[in-house]
Design a protein around this nucleic acid. Structure first.
Length: 275
DNA sequence: AACATAAGCAACCGCTCCGTT
DNA sequence: CAACGGAGCGGTTGCTTATGT
């Protein structure tokens, strides 16, 4: 048995909203609130729209205090960091960016930020990574530091600034993981040896940095405020899925990530850390 | 100037989650 | 405990605008 549709598709308007519809919806919600029932709202407001459509229009466009226009570099960094930590959970990412909607961030990521991070220009879908990182890419991730040659295991990049320090919901949690490789406060640095090419003798080393504010929510350990930097002389430049593999694949990081994912509650986490 | 292509973004679709009955 | 139904979410679509040829 399939689900009943949320509204009568034959009798609802679809497509772009007119200014009149916007005015009706905004006026109604400002006067009456949503009433906790989006399905009933369009009828009450005199709109021939699906409740879901009204909700989306309100949340993404009409509600007060929405920010439109260019994203700041700080916002870029937050998005990068959270995407690296939790993936495409846009609503959670949006919750860290006051005035931005999940839809906004999703669109921004898909159309601009992803390409910026990966150094893909408008005319090429994929291209080899240059010898040096793109300046804007590096600056986004490490705004307050100058670039250094990384010779592992001694070099450790500077940590990220904390993620909205005074507002981070997990800020109060006492757990901080200190990696076995290198750590600096909340920052963990891993080195991944990608091996050397027999043909040209070039060796590839990847430095992966990961900030961690561990916490437990809904029986899952979650973490955010991280990010990654990849330094390599021979890596194929690739899409974010491939980059994310650095977080979960068979590298130095893998056991750590997997152990985090396997920890299901507060007590286990403390036990794991010997607390 | 006209057309083609790419980029940007609003909106829709279908799924999952979760509260209620 | 299962079924139902609404809210919310992420992926995708398709229209509009910008840019290139």
């Amino acid at each position: 048995m399939g689900r009943a549709p949320c509204c009568d598709k034959a009798n609802v308007k679809k497509g772009p909203w007119s200014p009149e519809e916007d005015t009706k919806l905004k006026g109604f919600i400002e006067k009456n609130g949503t009433g906790g029932n989006w399905i009933a709202l369009p009828h009450k407001a005199g709109l021939k729209r699906c409740g879901k459509s009204c909700r989306l229009r309100w949340l993404n466009y009409l509600r007060p205090n929405l920010k439109h226009g260019e994203f700041s570099e700080e916002e870029d960094r937050i998005i990068y960091n959270l995407f690296a930590a939790i993936g495409s959970r846009w609503s959670i990412i949006a919750s860290q960016l006051p005035g931005r909607t999940d839809n906004d961030i999703k669109n921004y990521w898909n159309t601009k930020l992803k390409k910026k991070l990966l150094g893909i220009t408008s005319t090429s879908q994929r291209k080899a990574k240059p010898q040096q990182p793109y300046p804007d890419q590096h600056d986004l991730l490490f705004p307050s530091t100058h670039h250094q040659e990384i010779h592992l295991p001694t070099a450790v990049s500077q940590p990220f600034a904390p993620l909205i320090p005074d507002q981070h919901p997990l800020q109060h949690l006492p757990y901080q993981y200190h990696g076995t490789t290198e750590s600096n406060g909340s920052m963990i640095s891993f080195s991944i040896d990608q091996g050397c090419s027999s043909s040209d003798g070039n060796c590839t080393t990847t430095q992966l940095n990961y900030g961690n504010y561990g916490g437990v929510k809904d029986d899952r350990l979650i973490f955010s405020g991280g990010g990654f930097e990849i330094e390599s002389t021979a890596l194929e430049y690739s899409y974010e899925e491939e980059i994310k593999q650095f977080l979960i694949s068979n590298t130095t990081v893998s056991p750590w990530i997997q152990s985090l994912n396997s920890i299901s509650d507060h007590k286990n986490w403390k036990d794991h850390k010997g607390m």
